[in-house]
């Protein structure tokens, strides 16, 4: 039971990180009609910049600095590349994001190399123990920060004019334009929000005992099943999908290690993703798209 709780806690903490990344995917997909394959590299950039600034600045300033850099990068990519390609069709845009992903990855390798770096988390290696279960501070921080960020996002989308304008743009672009909503600005806004989420995810992805390495970008791939399971256009779906993937990975590593060459927990999220695609193609929470009368 203790083991189950221990793994469950870690699974939720990891799942929250996936949720933040998945949310970024969903917000960009909804807000600008693109699937951004470079998002994982934005996560990596976030971690590397925090790490680079940490020795020189207080942690919170390093974090803010990374947000500035990563958001600027996202906006640059959005404005110079994607907005120009928008009328060339989705496939072109998505392939362009793949290209951007490769470029940013190469840039990271050039600046920081392939080697393993230190941790970039906001809290160290400390733990607290509750009833035999060890709760690492990094895990607690991950969960608390994620919940705060999710709540802030909820307020943003439900209660602010920009949030409403973003949802309107996601719902019907031409109608949004007709209301005087600048959809170019909305595309940029959705990318900026996704970039902020990427940086938040990155510091927890690089929290002790995890370290920064270029493979951090690959974690975004693990968030793709989360996105599909939850539903491409559902914010709640992204969170639930992220938690499902995190729990499967950590609980699976504990309880399924004796089956399938120990790879079951790695494959299972993808199996679940395919299952969802077959049974419920719009994801657990995705909308089928309400008919326009």
């Amino acid at each position: 039971m203790t083991l189950f709780l221990q793994l469950g806690f870690q699974g939720i903490a990891l799942g929250m990180v996936y949720a933040l990344i998945a949310l970024g995917f969903v917000i960009m997909t909804k807000g600008s009609n693109t699937f951004n394959f470079a998002h994982g590299e934005f996560v990596a950039v976030g971690a590397y910049v925090v790490l680079a600034l940490m020795p020189h600045l207080p942690y919170w300033l390093a974090f803010l600095g990374s947000i500035v850099v990563t958001v600027a990068l996202a906006l640059l990519v959005e404005a110079t590349l994607l907005r120009r390609l928008l009328d060339k069709g989705l496939t072109t845009v998505v392939l362009a994001t793949l290209g951007v992903s490769i470029m940013v990855h190469a840039l990271i390798l050039m600046v920081w190399g392939v080697g393993t770096k230190g941790s970039a988390g906001p809290v160290g290696s400390g733990t607290v123990e509750v009833g035999g279960v060890v709760l690492p501070l990094s895990g607690i921080a991950t969960i608390v920060a994620s919940v705060i960020v999710l709540a802030a996002l909820l307020v943003f989308f439900r209660r602010t004019p920009y949030g409403l304008a973003l949802r309107a743009t996601a719902s019907h672009q031409e109608a949004a334009l007709a209301q005087g909503i600048d959809i170019g600005r909305m595309f940029a806004l959705s990318w900026a929000i996704a970039a902020v989420l990427a940086v938040v995810a990155s510091i927890f992805l690089a929290s002790f005992p995890r370290v920064v390495s270029p493979s951090i970008a690959l974690v975004a791939l693990a968030a793709i099943p989360a996105v599909v399971i939850g539903g491409m256009d559902s914010l709640i779906g992204a969170v639930v999908g992220g938690l499902i993937v995190g729990l499967i990975q950590v609980l699976g590593a504990g309880y399924l290690a004796d089956y399938g060459g120990g790879k079951l927990h790695e494959v299972l999220p993808y199996v679940l993703m395919l299952l969802v695609l077959v049974v419920r193609p719009y994801g657990l929470f995705g909308s089928r798209g309400i008919e326009r009368v």
């Binding site: 004019p161 304008a165 949802r167 019907h172 109608a175 209301q179 909503i181």
Partner: peptide
């Protein structure tokens, strides 16, 4: 061309954006 996923109130609010 209403915003189908948004409520009536939200549709109206979007018009005043």
């Amino acid at each position: 061309q209403v915003f189908p996923e948004l409520t009536v109130a939200e549709n109206l609010a979007a018009g005043g954006y």
